[in-house]
Design a protein around this nucleic acid. Structure first.
Lengths: 134, 134
DNA sequence: AAAAGTAGTGCAACTCATTTGCAAAGTTTA
DNA sequence: TAAACTTTGCAAATGAGTTGCACTACTTTT
């Protein structure tokens, strides 16, 4: 599935900006912040990228992670993702290089909640040092 | 152990402000933000409270939680807490009332990390609706 | 094809939590 | 007590995120 198809698949009209942002997210080995993406383009407007990311998120093309770095990071969802509970996974944030990785292979286990608490989503971030920083 | 002893125990000099902030945290049933605490006192300075919280956190009297609300929340550590891996626990953030609870009874399980990744701490937040908001 | 409507973009400005600089007040140490 | 250090209060800076608005581009209707 190419970039345009991916957007179409999530009901997002493929504008030039959106294709560029999607491409950037595809090529990045880790989650990216609004600022990261802005810096990748010479002449890009922050609010356009911001709105692009919001659109992507709303349509479940990407998910956001609050990794404690002060910047929200975004990463592509797997193709069939509906951002449901069973799509949830852990993230690892490196304190040194500030990179955030999706640990997509491990879903979060069932967690006991107090009575009548209802789980909808989760933001699970592990902090430490990544392999390349050790 | 009274308030002053608790501070002393963590090597924090017991000033008036610190005792007040500690008391506020003790009495709160949930994690509190800088703003929450500021509002509890008529005539309190934000940066003093801010620095107080930072001191508390550095000395492991409290831990901070990024619950995605846009405000960092703080909650008392259990007495023997060293903020080590085995002290880690989940948090629950209610999307409606914005309260954040420590689910202290459940420690996080062992999570498989990529090779050579080193875990130091974690920020685990479950989002949903709490019992009082349903 | 022209007009009207809708969606996307770029710029500037604003919000708001957090953080810092600095001087005054308080505390401890020599 | 004087000097050195710590804490506090005020004001201002920082920086991510967000919004208003005008302009452009695209779509749909006539």
């Amino acid at each position: 599935m190419n970039l345009e198809e991916k957007l179409h698949d999530r009901n997002i009209k493929p504008t030039a900006m959106r294709l560029l942002v999607l491409e950037a997210l595809e090529n990045a080995p880790m989650a990216m912040s609004l600022n990261d993406i802005e810096l990748m383009f010479e002449k890009a407007d922050k609010s356009t990228i911001y709105r692009t990311l919001k659109t992507f998120e709303k349509n479940k093309l990407i998910h956001s992670i609050e990794d404690g770095s002060g910047q929200v990071k975004y990463a592509l969802c797997p193709e069939s993702c509906e951002c449901e509970l069973n799509d949830l996974h852990y993230h690892f944030h490196c304190k040194k290089c500030k990179s955030t990785y999706c640990l997509s292979s491990q879903h979060i286990p069932k967690i006991e909640l107090p009575i009548n608490f209802e789980l909808e989503e989760a933001n699970m971030v592990l902090n430490g040092i990544c392999a390349s920083c050790r």
